[in-house]
Amino acid sequence: MKFDLDDQQRDFAASIDAALGAADVPAAVRAWSDGNTDPGRKIWSTLADLGVTALMVPEDYDGIGAHPTDLVVACERLGYWGVPGPITESVAVAPILLTADERSGELVSGELIATVAAPPLQPRAVNADFAGLILATADGRASAAAAADSHASVDPSRRLFDVTATGDPWDADVDRAVEFGVLATAAQLVGAGQALLDKSVEYAKQRTQFGRVIGSYQAIKHKLADVHIAVELARPLVYGAALSLGSGSSDTARDVSAAKVAAAEAGLLAARSGLQTHGAIGFTQEHDLSLLLLRVQALRSAWGDPTTHRRRVLEAFT
């Protein structure tokens, strides 16, 4: 079976790129890290206008009720541009936990941003200080929660919070919500890896050393080619996992975990190669590359680290 995006999905991705390309996303990320979410919320409002925040919300609550592949299309582009905020939690996970709850409709406008703690894969909630709705899962049920102690993340725009459940829990498809969380994170990693590769290639075409652009050196070519291969191999695994999740396949956990591992490794390779290509300047706070480097490191462990997901893949064969 050959899988490819249809024209509508390609147009959707292009519209996201056009909107985010016109916005100063790096400035919004830096402001978010400093506690000012206003620029970031304007970006979220733009995404809401494009239908991103409504993708997984049921049609009964003015959502789109889209297929997981559409979610992957969006999350890959959001990862590419490095949009701040709890993308995975608010766009992918919360709508599943709130399937029969009218609050899911409030996510559509983008004004309500949700975050989720779902142990053991996601024991803490990201950006709980900014989120208007905090959810927690336990024993196959979901409940509202409140933020407790905060913890620094390698990505300063993603502070992590312990949460305490409040109110009465309700029955929810927690397992499915978690798989959506893993899938959306994997898609963002693929997008971030592609962005790092594109930035590195562009820099390699401009930077000169010993009278030659560094991109003409074989060592640089091979390094970036390896990144290209890793990203291109991870991407179909992510879309394959989306198809598996959408069809309710019994192999969903295996497929989603395999996608997360591949995306995490591709993102890490892209980050390392990007830093090596740019040199030390790439890790300075003033350089936009540093924002993607930190985002990749944070997303690698979000919703389960590679070791956890390798274990899930192995368990599927035992």
Rank of each mutant, 00 (worst) to 15 (best):
L121I: 09
R10M: 15
V73F: 02
I134F: 07
P39Y: 02
Q8V: 06
D4R: 15
V231I: 10
E111A: 14
Q218I: 03
A22L: 09
A94K: 08
A258C: 12
T164P: 12
I64N: 07
H151C: 09
D149F: 13
T208C: 12
D24E: 10
V174K: 00
R103C: 11
D38K: 10
D168V: 14
K205R: 11
A66G: 03
L47I: 04
L71P: 05
G40F: 00
T252I: 11
T37D: 10
V154I: 15
E106T: 13
A94C: 07
D305G: 01
I96W: 14
L196N: 01
Q9I: 04
A258P: 00
D24T: 14
A259K: 00
H67V: 13
H222G: 15
E232V: 15
I229P: 10
A270T: 08
L294N: 03
A145P: 02
D149L: 08
D168R: 09
G279R: 02
Q194S: 10
R124D: 01
R254P: 01
I281Q: 09
G105H: 15
S301Q: 11
D4K: 10
R141N: 05
L299G: 03
A100I: 15
A138S: 01
G40P: 01
Q194R: 06
G21F: 12
Q122P: 00
R10T: 07
W170A: 11
A262L: 07
F130A: 09
D162M: 06
G215E: 05
D175W: 11
A145M: 04
G140K: 04
T277P: 02
I220K: 07
D62M: 08
L133D: 03
S150H: 15
E102W: 11
A125L: 05
A18D: 05
G132N: 11
L98R: 03
M56A: 13
E106Y: 12
D7T: 15
S273V: 11
A165F: 08
K205V: 02
Y217H: 15
E76W: 11
A131P: 05
L293M: 06
A23I: 13
V72S: 03
S15E: 14
T53I: 09
S290C: 14
A14T: 04
G140N: 08
T88A: 03
A270S: 14
S153N: 01
D226E: 13
S249E: 14
V227P: 02
P120D: 05
T318H: 12
D34H: 12
L224I: 08
A100N: 10
V231A: 02
R176L: 05
Y203M: 06
